[in-house]
Amino acid sequence: MLRRASVLKEAVRCASLREKAGSIPASVYEPIFHDPREFPEHEQLNIRLQGYDYVPLENFQGLVHRLSRRFGFNVVDSYAVAAQTERVVSYKPNSTLIDQEIGLSLYDRVVRISNVPAPRLQLLVNILRAHTPVGVKVTVKSHEKADEDYRYIPDVLLKQKQEELKMLDDPVIRKNLGWE
């Protein structure tokens, strides 16, 4: 009799099915996403290599790529950018007559890496410094849109159209068009 009463009591307490089921882990409804990141990360970094000597620069680009992979970074892109060219002239003594002249081009290579844990960057920079060939300048900076744009020829007509579209929001121009 007593037992029956207790069972009844239990049934009243857990009135709904939902309650009887007890607490359900959240992962039933949503998968658990594990975040494997140990440290805060740099989103995207550009390693820009500049040098006057083409062959060592190309080889070094390959090395940078390889080393970044060894660190477990994701190499997004590894590309060449148009070189900066210079004309170097030397003048004859006490005049502006050109004595000798030579064309120099500063070649430009970029390796873009992503998901770089912040403390690991310094290790990469250290090993790159140890391996930098003669006369190569290494710049490590975070990726910006300007770096991407620098690769391409700017489109004047497109920019003009975009400007025009933006101008339609200008109140002065709207008034002149008689729209307001």
Partner: peptide, 29 residues
């Protein structure tokens, strides 16, 4: 950032080197 580092030079600086009179003219397209 940005971190900038230069590779080693090919030779140590020449002592008493007098640079010739000249110019660098940028011809980048």
């Amino acid at each position: 950032l940005p971190l900038v580092s230069n590779g080693p030079a090919l030779s140590p600086p020449v002592k008493g080197y007098v640079a010739p009179d000249g110019d660098y003219i940028d011809t980048t397209r």
